[in-house]
């Protein structure tokens, strides 16, 4: 069995890291989208738009993202540090 080269280990590490950054960026974009359309549902002073009502029947996943915003707001500092993998 051949030993993995150091460069391969590094490649895997950075690949994983890149995937994780990409995923967290996507999640942030999803949260932003949910917030823009349905922010009024969680108490933000945004006007109710009819586009948000039209899309509401298909927005179950988006509303879940919205609840993530509420959950993270309890510990904004922790969630920010979490994004940078700082424990």
């Amino acid at each position: 069995m051949t030993k993995p080269r150091f460069i391969d280990i590094l490649r895997i590490f950075f690949k994983e890291r890149a995937y994780s950054i990409y995923d967290s960026e996507t999640l942030e974009k999803e949260k932003l989208f949910s917030f823009l359309l349905y922010g009024w549902m969680i108490g933000f002073p945004l006007p109710v738009t009819f586009l948000s009502l039209d899309t509401l029947p298909y927005a179950e996943k988006e509303l879940k993202k919205l609840f993530l915003i509420i959950r993270d707001m309890d510990d904004v500092f922790g969630s920010t540090l979490g994004k940078f993998d700082i424990d």
């Binding site: 960026e25 996507t26 974009k29 999803e30 932003l32 989208f33 823009l36 359309l37 586009l51």
Partner: peptide, 13 residues
Amino acid sequence: KLMELRQDILERK
């Protein structure tokens, strides 16, 4: 703008 954001999300996923 909203459509651009949505398209970006869908493309990523």
